[in-house]
């Protein structure tokens, strides 16, 4: 009797495991389980490749540093094929936490993203999409660009969205940028992250991380540094960096804010707002001051 009860229990476990095809995106599951062998007419080619830690350099060579800075853990790379139609590649980058994944997602999409109908952050380009699913950044690409692979990308995206339970965690600093005011928003880490958005400094600045918003001629940077908490010191440090560059001139210091021009006559306004250094770049000082004021109001009402 006990023997049969044991079999029944095992059978029950099997049924539960088969029926529950949604996999937690908290990173505890094996990435390869996220990729089914077949999605409608799209068949998984070969065994997906998984690379961890430093091996990312073997996979994407030169581009690996920035992923590591954001907190890369592992990547799985697979290819689906529909014979006669083409190939689609799927990559899932698992990051150390949801904030890191959010960061690399905004970085890869250039800050231009929206939401899918079930609320996941998503960006679509001509022949590929990026989607943020919890700790995972998923990139789905048409290797052979045509109408069938275009539809296939959407099919695979929907399949993965159904399979991966996810939630988004915006880093606190990223929540300070008003989405109504800035369409392109990026959460970046380190100097390289910032340099990929805007070339502010030639020297190493010591930025820990920051967020940026870009809208037409207006740019905002919200920065956190690693050198002490004294805001005056932070401001002085930045002023030294900017003054060392020939392209900046006409420095005016007023209390906790500094304004100056770059060689394209754009105005840069540095302010200390809450615990952040905020840099507004715009066509004139009035617009920069207005943007700084809007930031102050928005950052007060957001948590």
């Amino acid at each position: 009797m006990l023997k049969y009860m044991g079999y029944a229990f095992l059978l029950l476990l099997l049924i539960i495991s088969l029926s529950n095809d949604r996999i937690s995106a908290d990173g505890t599951s094996d990435l390869s389980k996220l990729l089914p062998g077949q999605i409608k007419d799209w068949i998984l080619k070969d065994i997906p490749e998984v690379l961890r830690g430093d091996d990312l350099f073997l996979y994407i060579n030169g581009g690996a540093d920035i992923y590591h800075e954001y907190g890369f853990e592992e990547v799985i790379s697979a290819e689906y094929e529909q014979v006669g139609a083409g190939r689609i590649s799927v990559e899932i980058y698992k990051m150390k936490d949801t904030e890191s994944a959010f960061g690399i997602f905004t970085f890869r999409t250039g800050g231009k993203w929206g939401k899918t109908c079930i609320g996941n952050l998503y960006s679509s380009e001509d022949y590929y999409i990026n989607i943020l699913l919890g700790k995972n950044l998923v990139t789905i690409t048409s290797i052979d660009i045509n109408k069938i692979t275009e539809k296939g990308i959407e099919l695979i995206r929907k399949s993965l969205e159904r399979r991966i339970v996810s939630s988004v965690a915006y880093p606190k600093i990223a929540r300070t940028i008003d989405p109504e005011q800035y369409k392109n928003r990026i959460y970046f880490k380190g100097d390289l992250g910032m340099m990929n958005i805007y070339n502010l400094f030639s020297a190493e600045s010591g930025i820990l991380h920051g967020s940026s918003g870009i809208e037409k001629n207006s740019i905002i940077f919200v920065l956190e540094f690693d050198h002490g908490t004294n805001t005056r010191k932070k401001l002085d440090h930045l002023l030294t960096l900017f003054k060392a560059e020939e392209r900046y001139s006409e420095f005016t210091i007023k209390g906790q804010s500094i304004s100056f021009k770059d060689r394209n006559k754009k105005i840069l306004l540095l302010s200390v707002i809450k615990d952040y250094i905020v840099i507004n770049i715009g066509e004139n000082l009035t617009s920069c001051k207005k943007a700084a004021k809007n930031f102050t109001i928005y950052s007060l009402i957001t948590k």
Binding site: F57, H68, S202
Partner: peptide, 27 residues
């Protein structure tokens, strides 16, 4: 940069700093 394709990946890894910090010095 393409010539890195002739150099061993292990040696190429030394082109990138080991601490994964992407500051100016890394570039």
């Amino acid at each position: 940069k393409n010539l890195m394709g002739l150099n061993s990946p292990k040696n190429n890894r030394t082109f990138h700093k080991s601490d994964w910090k992407t500051n100016r010095n890394s570039i």
